[in-house]
Every structure is written in structure tokens, then in C-alpha cells.
């Protein structure tokens, strides 16, 4: 298909997204086709490396940074926190499938009983609540470290987010996330897709813009600019602030729905978190 028509269908697809024919799988295929058409030389799994998939110079610096991965301490801290028993003697391992090892690819999922999307970070605090522990803050710190350890044990596993077709609420959550991605906001009036779909690969000042494809593979991230490890919702807040839109609460329903959509778009890619970014 002509790339311009494809872009239009990716853009317009979203406004007609609630129609009968378009579904998550059609959205994902359209995205995939759009980006592989736009970056024909980039192997699919490379999109998991964000802008380093197609910015040669930035990639060299990134590979150097990866010689001494700045997120390594977070993985160690996270493992210690993960294994430390709660006051009641239980631990995180008791809350998760397979003792919490190698399971990130199942998140986020739609919890039919709760009627909401559950992300891994939310599940960590759900586990704490179930064991009478205080919740941890969602953006950085201990929770990000635990998430980093859990991602680390899941490296190489293929993202496999499901939107159960027989559950209209799950589909509605996905649609709301998609809607968020395509809605303009903030004084500068940008949608997420203005930058990461329409302008992927271009430079915004000194920043090469990455693709939606791969946005959910590698969290949490150690960012040089942050000087610490942070979660996906921290990054999304920052993208909101950049256009002078008010960020939502981390792990708000809207952000979780957004993560549901975003992660679905990366279905089929391998997890490679935690990661480093500049």
C-alpha cells in the first residue's frame, strides 16, 4: 500500500476505531505495515530499542552506555526487595504466576472481576495491599526497582497482551487507550501520534522521535536525564508536560488503558527491559 494512504488509514483508523470492522488486531497490523514501510531497513525486533533502531550516532553512544548498564543496580535492589518477606512472612512470589519470574509478557491484562486493566506496577501494589503493606510510589524508587527485576527475568519473552473478544469492557478499555493516543491535548495541541506516528524518525530539536512500535518492550528505563530508573507512566507524564498538557495520575485508569493499547501494539516483540535511554 502507498505509504501516504497507510498513514492516513493509521490516523483515520482511530477515529473510526469503534466501527465494526476495526479491532485491536487490525490496528496492530496497520501500525506494523506503516512502520515497516517507513523504515524498511530496520529489523522488526530492533524497534524495541526505540530511537536507537534508526539513529546511528545516538546508537553508538547507547551501545557504549550499555557496556556498564546503568540499570544494573536497580535490578539488584529490585531482586532484594522482591525476595524480602512481608511482615506476615509471605512475599511477592506468592502473589504471581510462576513465583513472579518471567511473567511480564502477560501484562497489562484486563481483569474481568475488577473490570479494569491491571499493569505489572499496579499488580505489585495490589500484592502489597493483599499483604497489609503500604503502597509504593509509582514513578521511581523501590517499585520501579522491583519492576526492573521482574522485567529482567522476563527478557526474551514475547509480548502477548490479550483483548478478550468476548468481553466488551476489555475492548472498551483498549478503545479508550487508543482514543487517548490519538487525541490532541495541551497548549501545543499534539496527540501522542503526532510525534510518534506522523513524525517518527524526525528530529524535534535534538531528539530523534521513536516509533509507537516498541514503546512498551523495555520498562522501566534508566534515563541519563533522570539520573535514575523510572516507569513507563513517568515517561508518559513527561510527554504530556512537553506539550503543556496536565499529566494524569500514574496508574490512573486512563494511563492504564493507554498502556493496554500501547503494549498491544508491541505484541510479538520480545521484552528487553530494563533499558537505558538518554
Amino acid at each position: 500500500m502507498n505509504n501516504k494512504i497507510l498513514l492516513l488509514s493509521v490516523i483515520i483508523g482511530l477515529f473510526t476505531g469503534t466501527g465494526a470492522t476495526a479491532g485491536p488486531e487490525e490496528d496492530r497490523t496497520a501500525m506494523l505495515e506503516y512502520y515497516t514501510g517507513r523504515f524498511p531497513d530496520v529489523p522488526l525486533q530492533e524497534f524495541a530499542n526505540g530511537l536507537y533502531a534508526f539513529d546511528e550516532i545516538a546508537r553508538e553512544q547507547w551501545i557504549e552506555m550499555e557496556d556498564f548498564p546503568p540499570y544494573e543496580i536497580a535490578i539488584e535492589d529490585g531482586q532484594a526487595l522482591f525476595e524480602a518477606p512481608f511482615a506476615n512472612g509471605k512475599s511477592y512470589a506468592d502473589c504471581f504466576d510462576n513465583g513472579g519470574i518471567g511473567i511480564r509478557q502477560q501484562y497489562p491484562y484486563f481483569d474481568a472481576d475488577l473490570g479494569e486493566v491491571v499493569t505489572l506496577e499496579l499488580a505489585i501494589n495490589q500484592c502489597r495491599a493483599a499483604n497489609d503493606e503500604e503502597p509504593l510510589p509509582y514513578l521511581t524508587g523501590d517499585l520501579a526497582a522491583i519492576s526492573a527485576y521482574m522485567s529482567y527475568t522476563s527478557r526474551g519473552n514475547t509480548i502477548n497482551v490479550k483483548v478478550p473478544q468476548d468481553n466488551p469492557s476489555a475492548l472498551a478499555a483498549y478503545e479508550s487507550g487508543k482514543q487517548y493516543y490519538y487525541t490532541r491535548r495541551g497548549q501545543l495541541n499534539f496527540a501522542c501520534m503526532s510525534c510518534h506516528v506522523q513524525s517518527a524518525g524526525l528530529m524535534l530539536r535534538a531528539d530523534r522521535l521513536s516509533t509507537t512500535l516498541g514503546h512498551a518492550t523495555h520498562w522501566p528505563v534508566y534515563r541519563a536525564k533522570w539520573g535514575e530508573i523510572g516507569t513507563l507512566h513517568k515517561r508518559i507524564s513527561e510527554c504530556n508536560s512537553q506539550v503543556f498538557a496536565k499529566p494524569l495520575e500514574p496508574q490512573s485508569i486512563e494511563y492504564r488503558n493507554l498502556e493496554y493499547f500501547l503494549t498491544y501494539m508491541s505484541n510479538g516483540l520480545e521484552l528487553n527491559g530494563p533499558a537505558s535511554r538518554r
Binding site: 513524525s199 524526525l202 528530529m203 524535534l204 530539536r205 535534538a206 531528539d207 522521535l209
Partner: peptide, 16 residues
């Protein structure tokens, strides 16, 4: 404007 446009006399412009 330089965040997105090359403009003569401006440095570090984007190509958005």
C-alpha cells in the same frame, strides 16, 4: 520555531 524548522541564522534546528 527551531525545534521543528531549519531557519537561516538558527542553530540546532530540528527537521520535524
Amino acid at each position: 520555531c527551531l525545534a521543528c524548522h531549519a531557519i537561516e541564522g538558527g542553530e540546532l534546528a530540528g527537521n520535524y
